[in-house]
Amino acid sequence: MAHFAVSAVGADRPGIVAAVTGVLVDQGCNLEDTSMSILRGHFAMMLLVAGPKGLAPATLEEELGGIAGRFDLVVAVRPIDEAVPASPSGEPWNVAVYGADRPGIVHQVASLLAEAEVNITDLTTRLIGEDGRPVYAMILEVTLPPGLDGDELSSRLETRARELGVECSVHPSEADIL
């Protein structure tokens, strides 16, 4: 089994998922974890797929060329390691940061998290609001390293958010198992 990272991005319209996955099925590939969403009017697909041994990434990319042309998609296929790398485990928390848009919000927040060895496991950002009054919203899911508690993270983030002139909140995301 070979594993690939397949990405495809193009102006959103019906049929993109069906077309891309059709080629993958024809090539004997299985979709594993995927994330697909509309980003600023573009449908962005990030797929981790398993394919038959011997299938070259370049071949798969070439096979996707036909529909890439038809749907005007930017497509890339890269090989990835078969082993699933372990993510740092820890307590999961949610972080929300939002406010008037300005350069560097994501970088500033992510840098603070990196310095604290907080691992980002999910991050979504959206540019919203009206023309001339853009609002930036960022929602993160993070895991805390041993020894750092949510309140400590919260106060560090609040300081950084104040410097940036944005709002931020932190709350535990641990699910209840029913």
Binding site: S173, E174, A175, D176, I177, L178
Partner: peptide
Amino acid sequence: HGREGCMSVPDLTG
């Protein structure tokens, strides 16, 4: 809204 998990769907929460 709240985040739930389930013994019968052990790998996901929603």
